[in-house]
């Protein structure tokens, strides 16, 4: 089975091809802008390096965040277009799961969400749902490893170990998608965890008076 995975949910552009559990081609480039221009050529390079064509793909794996809203949408939109065009399933994988992938024991995936907050998800202990919170929302766990861009801070805060992610995002996402059950997956949708910045209008409309008789 051939799975192409990719991710642009942070300041990078990453992709990997997984063929029956092996990874014949992968790319990772640090990138703060230009991901929309770079992503598809990078995917073509990965396919070419492995001697594969678009039509050989059985499955797409795509990073759905949390992370940079625009970056997440770049990959998710491309994945949905590819899935529709190829007639293969696309599977959304969170960046938190990608960070924790392959690490044994209790793991806390930690991403910097700015504004003094982080995106977190516990693996192998506690509740499993990803959430937006602060370091004070975290609790210690014996043998815990903290992984991700906020991993060092979280580890220091909890007195836990700080560990690196074992795989680059694109590579982890491709591997996770390849191992998932293919039974009618939902279309990948961004995982934002944070509401859109939008405020109702400040100014109240004028009072509408009843009509006076002439």
């Amino acid at each position: 089975m051939i799975t192409l995975g990719f991710d642009t949910s942070g300041p990078w552009c990453g992709a990997a091809l997984i063929v029956d559990g092996d990874c014949p081609a992968a790319r990772y480039e640090d990138m703060t802008k230009g991901q929309a221009e770079r992503l598809m050529p990078m995917l073509q390079e990965v396919l070419a390096e492995a001697g594969a064509a678009w039509g050989d793909l059985d499955r797409i794996g795509v990073g759905i965040g949390p992370g940079n809203f625009t970056g997440v949408r770049i990959s998710v939109s491309a994945a949905r277009g590819l899935a529709l065009g190829l007639g293969v399933p696309a599977m959304g994988v969170t960046l938190l799961e990608a960070l924790a992938y392959g690490t044994e024991g209790p793991v806390l995936a930690c991403l910097d969400a700015r504004r003094g907050q982080g995106y977190f998800q516990r693996f192998g202990y506690g509740t499993a749902e990803p959430f937006l919170g602060s370091l004070d929302d975290l609790e210690p766990e014996p043998g815990l490893k903290c992984i991700g861009s906020l991993g060092a801070e979280a580890a220091a805060h909890l007195g836990a170990a700080h560990a690196p992610a074992l795989y680059a995002p694109g590579s982890a996402i491709a591997r996770i998608a390849a191992r998932r059950s293919a039974a009618a997956p939902e279309r990948p949708a961004p995982l934002y965890l944070r509401a859109a910045d939008a405020a109702p209008p400040r100014e109240a409309p004028p009072v509408i008076l009843p009509e006076t008789l002439p």
Partner: peptide
């Protein structure tokens, strides 16, 4: 961006 990326996915595929 979403439109362009969706179209690129369709065109590549």
């Amino acid at each position: 961006l979403s439109g362009v990326m969706c179209a690129k996915g369709l065109a590549a595929a």
